[in-house]
Write a protein that binds this DNA or RNA. Structure first.
Length: 471
RNA sequence: GGCGGUAUAGCCAAGUGGUAAGGCAGAGGACUGCAAAUCCUUUACCCCCAGUUCGAAUCUGGGUGCCGCCUCCA
């Protein structure tokens, strides 16, 4: 049984998919006007891991994440850069993919772009108007929140409080300050598309309603995003989608929102000068450490991005990787299939830990607790190798598979790929081994220091010298 | 002002009634030519004050601190 905290009810609920064995999952993606920042990276990483976990649990998941490629920020930036909005979008979609790939974030099953779904958006708006929940006003179309009694039910605010903070732009023709644009009439110099209400462009929220409905249907299992999207974006999305479908069914069964990422205990903002793109973070810290950091706290808690926390995360990743490296090395040097070893006992210990890991992941996706279990697995492997001179192949197969299984979900260990200086490194190690045999420690330490400079760390073991690349 | 979240060791962080996971850092030890890795040992009056209970980090009430949303920012 899987429990998920549903922001609709503010409770942990058992996850029951609409269709047994299948999950429809929509996650809000980036507005592609710039590189995405480290705060954006949190939902991308965390919900990608949730997606993997759902698949691990046997669900066939359809994961949709949009690209918002038309809005005020897009238009503004394109003007600045003297390029078209479409060119800007193409560029930053490519940059998104580059950074997301580097962070080990799997590509969604569908990555729809708003501008490629104008007909769907228009027909969604038409349905909302036909159902009496939107009105046309001088080329704009607004959602009529007063016609929607459930409005405010996701963010749990009453309309008066929301209204107190509502902002009305000059030129907007709203009946109520909280009404929001589904369609915006064309302004000079802005991209526009023909519509029944004249030329214009879609509002911010409507694309998600139109595209989620197209790819996932009117009633979807999971919708995720950052907490700050809860209002107004998700509140509006839900109102639109339900007003359009008019089916009486909720737009979303489980709303999931990740907590905010702070930098040095402050909200990231350009004015504070603590703005950090994912690109810059990847250049500064190992992607594995960034993932480790994101998964080391519960996804709904706030996390604080500091140099110290990233160093700690890097050290944690090192421990995981050391275990994998030691295991792989021992598999080559200490394997002995006739060694006496209680394979069944070991297997049941691993299974017990695996059960704990699953329990943690199924308890509102508690990756922090699950990572704790991963370290327990590491400890079991390390102590087993410590206590046994040689081990049978089954030990290595079981252990390696266990680590790989966890890493397929969390992506915090990684694998080592051969590089073209491998042979040279190994020949230097061979030379060092000869030097050590001859008690020429000066030469042997020289070689070790030289390799250290190049990010290669040597470890001498009774079975020979093992080496690894630093993160 | 309204709504919500959070407060656990030097640091990060699990833990929704039964004598506090895990990681990082530190100290001592084993191992090592020296290291590194690993292993062993070691580090907590769970923000404060009341209350409920046989029993609370966990529940209730009241404080205090920090954070977020209410401003098309994940």
């Amino acid at each position: 049984m899987m429990l998920l905290f549903n922001d609709l009810t503010r409770k942990r609920e058992e996850f029951v998919p609409i269709t047994p064995g299948k999950v429809s999952f929509y996650s809000c993606g980036p507005t592609v006007y710039d590189y995405f920042h480290i705060g954006n990276a949190r939902p991308f990483i965390v919900f990608d891991v949730l997606r993997r976990w759902l698949e691990h649990e046997g669900y066939k998941v359809t994961f949709v994440q949009n690209f918002t490629d038309i809005d005020d920020k897009m238009i503004h930036r394109a003007h600045q850069e003297h390029i078209t909005v479409a060119e800007l979008a193409d560029k930053f979609i490519a940059e998104y993919n580059r950074d997301a790939d580097a962070l080990g974030i799997r590509r969604p099953d569908v990555s729809p772009r708003a501008t490629e779904h104008i007909p769907e958006i228009i027909s969604t708006i038409e349905k909302i108007i036909a159902n009496g929940h939107a009105y046309v006003s001088e080329g704009d179309v607004y959602f009529d929140i007063r016609s929607w009694p459930k409005y405010g039910s996701l963010c749990k605010q009453n309309l008066e409080d929301l209204e107190a903070g509502a902002r009305v732009e000059p030129g907007e023709k709203k009946r109520d300050p909280l009404d929001f644009a589904l369609w915006k009439a064309e302004k000079p110099g802005e991209p526009s598309w023909p519509s029944p209400w004249g030329k214009g462009r879609p509002g911010w929220h409507i694309e998600c309603s139109a595209m989620s409905s197209k790819y996932l249907g009117d009633n979807i299992d999971i919708h995720s995003g950052g907490v700050d999207l809860m209002f107004p974006h998700h509140e509006n999305e839900a109102a639109q989608s339900e007003a359009a479908s008019n089916s009486g069914k909720p737009f979303v069964n489980y709303w999931l929102h990740n907590g905010f990422l702070l930098i040095d205990s402050e909200k990231m903002s350009k004015s504070l000068g603590n703005f950090l793109t994912a690109r810059a973070a990847i250049e500064k810290y190992p992607p594995l450490a960034l993932r480790f950091f994101m998964l080391s706290a519960h996804y709904r808690s706030p996390i604080n991005f500091t140099p110290e926390s990233l160093e700690q995360s890097s050290a944690g990743v090192e421990r995981l990787r050391n275990c994998k490296g030691d295991l792989d090395f021992a598999a080559k040097t200490r394997r002995n299939d006739s060694a006496s070893f209680d394979v069944d006992g070991y297997k049941s210990q691993l299974q017990e830990l695996d059960k704990k890991f699953s329990d943690a992941m199924n308890d509102d996706f508690n990756t922090a607790a699950a990572m704790g279990i991963l370290f327990d697995v590491v400890y079991l492997i390390n102590t087993t190798m410590k206590d046994n001179e040689t081990l049978p192949g089954e030990f290595f197969t079981l252990s390696q598979n266990a680590l790989k299984g966890y890493d397929d979900i969390l992506g915090v260990i990684g694998s080592d790929e051969a590089e073209n200086d491998d042979a040279e490194i190994e020949s230097l190690i061979q030379e060092r081994t000869e030097a050590r045999k001859a008690k020429n420690f000066k030469r042997s330490d020289e070689i070790r220091d030289e390799l250290k400079e190049r990010g290669i760390v040597l470890e001498d073991t009774p079975q020979g010298t093992k080496w690894k690349r630093e993160l």
